[in-house]
Design a protein around this nucleic acid. Structure first.
Lengths: 232, 232
DNA sequence: CGCTCTATTGATAAACCTCAAATACAGTGG
DNA sequence: CCACTGTATTTGAGGTTTATCAATAGAGCG
């Protein structure tokens, strides 16, 4: 079976397998399983037995975690070249989050058995994976601290900037979020309510920092927003 | 150099090296560096270059993360047999947290070079380390969600139960926390203020769920507390 | 016994959530 | 092209939770 050169290219520059030699990359690639997801497809659900790791090739995954009493938190987005569900490397676990496709999304997946096999074959892969896990750990710890220490509007600013980094595109008007994002989603990401998000965005719009519409946001003054996210 | 049999035993049952064969364990042990810390000694500080991983042999480490605007969060405690600072396996990073000894504490440390060498030599070590990182990730994600979704008193209940699990000891009166823990520390762990913790504990004391004194807590009704932590 | 550090408690205020109602927007089918 | 329908969003009022501040009490230590 010939490896798809496009996929190989993404794999090569991914956080998971960058640095590996060509032949190893091809081996890793051919042992994975390629899949396409439609928008809002659920790749896996919180509580399912964790069987596979997934690398995003195109599109985006949204990881959410649900609390018994109804509230939902967005854990993070997984962009092209990023890996998720490293937990699948260990048996007996369940996915702690739900993964949902944001727009049409392509992924490459490896099940546990293959993953463990690959890691014993190429220890550098295990180290890469470890690096991914540690990075994720650092990020969520930072967000945890922000949640404890900062006020809502500051957190909303950080949220908006994070979403921006996860795929904002430059336009003449500023930096635009290219996928639909509701106030509710922003609230789930920032740990607040859609009302508070709405109010806060209104204020920023009056200040000229952003332009927003229905499920659409353009940041017109990144600098001001960054400053605010850091100083409050 | 002969390995200390006591340390070998702890290493053998640790989350980091359990499952390894004796000779490998000895190899891992002898490449580590043993150190003793006095109470409140700082092992490493947030922002320091991350050079070593540490396994706690005796005692306990408290990991805290500091926010610019003064507030501090307790990220977790590291108990005997547990490992911390996996980040040290990668170059160019800094410790994202501060580690402080709670009581006299003994540790076994490996620097980055040795760690990477060991992981290439024994890939199962890399997988173990990955498992540790993933477990930590899951824990902090859960706490993140709790912080978003639950009220203070519920979080304080969870905090107390977590501290209990990290080394509570059974006495005739109930389960006692054997190391001094202030209201401020509980607040830093639960993401609130010492005043709110004090008030909440007072209420529980009146209900007969706990007995508390200066930097000392005994849980007399675990069941009630567990129930409350889950239902609110 | 006095000093210092921790804890308690009360009063007050700020931040933020909840709920309700009105409004804007996008897509659909006539 | 336009009315219609279902969401998404905005905005206001009011209430709750929890932080903040201040003052007091208690515990341990030399």
């Amino acid at each position: 079976m010939k490896p798809d050169p496009d996929i190989l290219k993404i794999l090569k520059s991914s956080e998971f397998a960058s640095g590996l030699k060509q032949e190893k990359l091809i081996d890793v690639l051919t042992q994975g399983r390629h899949a396409r997801l439609e928008s809002d497809d659920i790749l896996f659900s919180q509580g399912d037995p964790a069987v596979s790791c997934h690398l995003v090739l195109k599109g985006r995954l949204k990881l959410t975690k649900l609390h018994e009493q109804g509230r939902e938190a967005i854990v993070r987005y997984i962009d092209p070249g990023q890996l998720t569900a490293a937990i699948a490397v260990f048996k007996g676990s369940e996915y702690p989050v739900t993964a949902l496709a944001v727009g049409r999304t392509e992924i490459l997946s490896w099940n546990r058995k293959i993953m463990v096999h690959l890691m014993f074959k190429y220890p550098e892969l295990a180290i890469k994976l470890l690096e991914v896990a540690v990075t994720r750990l650092d990020e969520i710890q930072t967000r945890y601290l922000e949640l404890v220490a900062e006020q809502v509007d500051q957190r909303i600013a950080r949220t908006l900037l994070r979403i921006m980094k996860h795929g904002g595109i430059k336009t003449s008007a500023g930096i635009e979020i290219p996928f639909p994002i509701s106030r509710q989603e922003m609230a789930d990401y920032a740990g607040t309510t859609l009302f508070t998000v709405s109010r806060t965005l209104s204020v920023w719009e009056k200040k000229g920092w952003i332009k927003s519409g229905r499920e659409k946001i353009t940041i017109t003054n990144v600098h001001a927003l960054v400053l605010f996210s850091e100083i409050g």
